[in-house]
Computed example of a mutant assay.
Amino acid sequence: NYNIRVLGADMGSAGTTLVASSPHGQQAMTHIEMGVGCGLPPFLRQTGAQAVRRWLPFDLPPTEVWNALHNKAIYPHTVPQTKQALHLELATVREILGRAWAEAARLWSETGGDGRIPRQWDLVVGSGQVLANAPNLALAALALLDGLQQVGVYSLALDAKGLLGMLGSVATVSPLAAAQVAGYDSLLELGVVVAPLGVARPGKTALKLKITFDDEREISNVTIPAGVLQLIPLKADEKATLEIRPRRPFSLHPPGGAGSGLIAEVNGGALGILIDTRGRPLLLPEGEEARRQQIREWLEQLGIPFDVPAAPLPSEQHDES
Rank of each mutant, 00 (worst) to 15 (best):
P249S: 08
G115T: 15
P57M: 04
T111N: 08
I219E: 14
Q81N: 01
M166I: 05
D59G: 06
A28T: 15
E33T: 01
A140H: 02
A157P: 03
G115K: 14
E286M: 05
D159M: 09
G203H: 03
T111V: 13
E288R: 06
Q293R: 10
V228I: 15
A206S: 02
S155Q: 15
S22D: 03
G269Q: 04
L262A: 11
V173G: 00
T82H: 06
G261Q: 09
N3Y: 10
R5E: 08
H24G: 01
M34H: 03
P314C: 10
T205F: 03
G261L: 04
R99D: 03
G165R: 09
S315A: 15
R201H: 09
L190K: 08
H253K: 01
Q46M: 14
G279D: 12
L282K: 10
E265C: 01
L148S: 12
L197E: 12
V192C: 14
A195F: 09
P62M: 07
A102P: 00
A178R: 05
A138M: 02
A102H: 00
V36F: 00
A91P: 09
L299S: 09
I32N: 00
R245S: 09
L197M: 14
L284E: 07
L229R: 11
A138N: 02
I219K: 11
A9V: 15
T277Q: 10
M166A: 10
K210S: 06
D122G: 10
P255G: 08
A206E: 01
P202D: 06
H318Y: 05
W101T: 05
N71W: 11
P42D: 12
M29I: 13
A311M: 05
G198R: 04
E64Q: 10
K83L: 14
V124T: 04
G259L: 13
A100C: 10
L163H: 10
Q230L: 08
I4Q: 13
A310M: 04
P118G: 14
L7I: 12
E316C: 02
Q120C: 13
V65K: 00
A270I: 04
P61E: 14
L271T: 08
L7N: 03
Q50H: 12
E288A: 14
E265N: 07
G152W: 11
L188N: 07
W55V: 07
N221A: 11
P202F: 10
N267D: 07
A240Q: 02
I273V: 11
P76T: 04
A14P: 00
K83N: 15
K208P: 00
R119Q: 15
R53S: 15
R106E: 13
L313V: 14
L274Q: 00
A236C: 02
R201Q: 13
A68R: 02
A105W: 02
P309Y: 05
G147H: 12
E95V: 04
A104R: 01
N67G: 01
R291G: 07
